[in-house]
Amino acid sequence: MRFRKASSILEYASREGVRLSGAMARYESENSSMPIQSVYLKMGEIWAAMNNSTSAAFESPERIELMITENDSLKLAKGGRSFFGQPYYKAMQYALSSSALNASMGKVAACPTGGSCGIVPGCIRSAQEAIGLDGESAIEGLLASCAVGLIVYENATVSGALGGCQAEVGTAAAMASAAVCEMLGASPSVCFEAASIALKSLMGLICDPVASLVESPCSKRNATGAALALSCAEMAMAGITSIIPFDEVVEAMAAVGKKLPEEHRETSEGGIAKAPTALQLAMKALGSQQD
């Protein structure tokens, strides 16, 4: 079974009368010859690792070893007070935790990449808590997010070195928004509307890591990517559509990625990585690593 376009997934889901999570579980089951039940179990294992990563930074701060950034997840946990809504706040706190753990060589689940690993779990856990859903809902959300990731994999790239940060954080935010819509009971098409809005919102974002570390601006982009994903889910759940279908948004993202100059594709030769302060931080961080 192969889906190259979101439109094919939508057709399949409608023909078979399944939700987006169900369509992806069948896709994996058929291709891997794994029973459907095992697909859910294996996704449950991935979720367990993700879920652990979302609280590591504030529950076990000793596991966090960062070179140039601070444990910002811990700051949000200690701050504890949101001005604009707890689910947004928590999504950022969780996303920052996974991101910090990733940068510390901790155990995370790539989703779709290591650099963007906080966005999907942060949103799923926050949505779960906000709506009061069970563990199974997280697995369904994750499965639905894979439909979005799959179409990006098939038609563009999720690598920052190839397509810039839009391919990593952009894809992750699109996946997360679809996950949350699925968890809220939305139809497959609503999930893809949310994903389209998210990917459009981050189109053109370059990959410009300071000191070639996966810390800045990566970790805060995990936090803002998570908040953005929740915004897109809110809009899609209210019936707002993207106007441009997801398949065309992905094509546009792929084209933009190809046009990004090499200095904006993970080489640390452009963007924020070349700011004077960034260069100083790089000298300090990489100098000390040589000892």
Binding site: M105, A110, C117, L150, L213
Partner: peptide, 23 residues
């Protein structure tokens, strides 16, 4: 070959980068 969803959500790995660390 069709892509596995466990390469999209996953793999579980030690960070920070799937291509530079995991690979």
């Amino acid at each position: 070959m069709p892509i596995s969803i466990f390469d999209i959500a996953g793999p579980v790995m030690v960070g920070p980068s799937s291509s530079h660390t995991l690979g």
